[in-house]
Design a binder for these strands. Structure first.
Lengths: 256, 256
DNA sequence: GCTCACAAACTTGTATACAAGAATGTAAGC
DNA sequence: GCTTACATTCTTGTATACAAGTTTGTGAGC
């Protein structure tokens, strides 16, 4: 595969996994081409690959956009994750001690990031746990599948998750690792199942994603100070920033 | 997505699933472009997508080739299928009666094809069973993942499977459906696990795929009659077609 | 007769030019 | 002042031309 195109692909995917790119973000071909110092051809190649992997979409002659999964797609993604990750644990007969060890280390790093209030790496690490688990088994194919799925669920969380529950997720991870260490694989599988269901249940899938989310963010109170005078078309009720809307998107909303 | 490119992609994928394309087959850009009456650009688009999905590979300035999975990759693919398909069954609490019904119909069609000796559609249907099962659950994402995996395992079977075991596979399918109908989902999951393991065990993964398989086929006895006279470089031992080689590839070797 | 070096043909890799359409800005009409 | 029609600009869609490399074919030399 082309190294340059692979770089772009990987850069975008890992940015999504890290919660640095919001769903709905527009990815212009020329801008990416300039940024990576390659021609549009390469960028298009990377984008088409990402489209196949389900993380971006093209709108004809308008541009490439990071996907904004619908509620239905969100349910499918979570169901698929449950199927695969519990299936993974069920299939195992024993977990190698090195794997348990590296998972414990991962959880420790998670806790550290949470304790330190490091929102950014925390979000990244929480999603990474599952990838790490698959990776530890040495099945590259399965790892890649879970990685793509995690990118999806990360975006979903950013769209539908109203609150942060990082500590809780990390606690779940800890329990799963403990069960694995104790050799109680059915328990681990059950915990994993419950964990993913819990995360899904924490989402507000009835609230449709707000197509204006990006704009609203720009109009939030903190940025009002620097706003240009006499903003035209501020056809809003006068509640300052109120806007009774159940949904709000925030940068590092990833939870799992 | 581009309709023309999507057609090419789908045509190639379903040909693989049907066992009509052998692993290692070369897919020239220009030839495909002529065949589908599109430009190379579109063909390349489809090929890159298929590469992302793991069914073709490009060899620099030589061409695109249908993948020939290594023994390691074969193990990964089967492990992944076991994980996902048993996970799928384990996750279920109940199976809707319509799903059972459509699965029974599918198995009936399988048996018919086998009884009629219809090698071609039989191979296609056997792989289709699993896709059908996923599809019946209405999860498009999961269906697509299993579809791609099935393409992989089909190619693997064509490379490593020395014998045909179609009837056996269909019998397994029947048992699985029976368990589902009886509502005994854990049993169905166990049967599925055993089924996939059995298919994998039926492969000869120690025998390295023969890079000359395609050539050997062309030199098989049946085609010898019409062979051009005084074939140059027939540097073979004089055993007619013997060639003590553990592996031989045949067109419709798909088993599952 | 066999091997090796060179040339020709063929195939993918990449960039670029231009076409087609969408979004935006502008001005005329009511 | 507001709406609507049109022109402009920006972005992707597509094809094509050429570059780069691989394979095949040919002939000279031993």
């Amino acid at each position: 595969m082309n190294p340059a195109a692979a770089n772009i692909e990987e850069a975008i995917l890992s940015a999504i996994l890290a919660g640095r790119i919001n769903p709905g973000t527009r990815l212009g071909e020329q801008k990416l081409a300039d940024l990576f110092s390659v021609s549009r051809t390469r960028v298009r190649e990377a984008m088409m690959r990402l489209e196949t992997r389900g993380v971006v979409q093209v709108s004809a002659r308008r541009g490439w956009y990071v996907v904004e999964p619908s509620a239905d797609e969100a349910r499918e993604a979570f169901q698929t994750r449950r199927v695969i990750e519990t299936g993974l644990l069920h299939t195992l007969r024993a977990v190698p001690s090195e794997v348990v060890k590296s998972l414990k280390e991962h959880v420790a790093i998670e806790r550290e990031a949470i304790a330190a209030g490091d929102v950014h790496s925390r979000a990244c690490l929480l999603g990474d746990f599952h990838i790490h688990l698959a990776d530890a088994l040495g099945n590259r194919l399965l790892t890649e599948i879970i990685r793509d799925l995690t990118a999806r669920t990360t975006l979903i969380s950013m769209l539908y998750q109203p609150t942060e529950k990082a500590a809780e997720s990390s606690h779940d991870h800890e329990d799963i690792v403990a069960a694995l260490e104790a050799g109680d694989i059915p328990l681990a599988a059950r915990l994993m199942d419950e964990h993913i269901q819990k995360v899904e249940a924490g989402l507000n899938l009835t609230a449709k994603p707000d197509p204006l989310a990006g704009l609203r963010e720009l109009l939030s109170p903190s940025t009002f100070a620097g706003a240009p005078p006499s903003m035209p078309g501020a056809a809003n009720g006068a509640h300052g920033h109120g806007h009774a809307h159940t949904h709000h998107s925030h940068a590092s909303a990833k939870e799992d």
